[in-house]
Design a protein around this nucleic acid. Sequence first.
DNA 1: AGGGTGACGGGAA
DNA 2: CTTCCCGCCACCC
Length: 115
Amino acid sequence: MLPFTVKVLEIIKEIPSGSVMTYGQIAAIAGSKRGARQVARILHSMSEKYSLPWHRVVNAQGKIVLHNQELANRQKELLENEGVFIQEDQRIDLNHYKYTGEMAFKKEKEDFPWE
DNA sequence: AGGGTGACGGGAA
DNA sequence: CTTCCCGCCACCC
């Protein structure tokens, strides 16, 4: 297995419940700034057998982008169950939920929509 | 071998 | 805000 793939899997495993990361962000941390599509492919092929929190990965616009509608619905449910608010336009506010690895909750000045 | 294809991203108009 | 467009690269025929 490629080193890049191993890193990607490790990074995804560290995303805490209630947060999300983007494909490109994960690729950059893993060492390939333009490897977003590879991250997506890795998730597509390995999310089951490596029991990853695959649902905590969205695109750079904060949207769920699975082509498979059934899986997309499952991802939305899983995220909402963790307290991630999905807006009417199906986007997630990355300013609130994007996991940076360090200051995960740097912006607590703004109120959460459901409170 | 070679062309098509994405669970993507970012810049331009 | 919306398209459109191109770079990207491992996989799958």
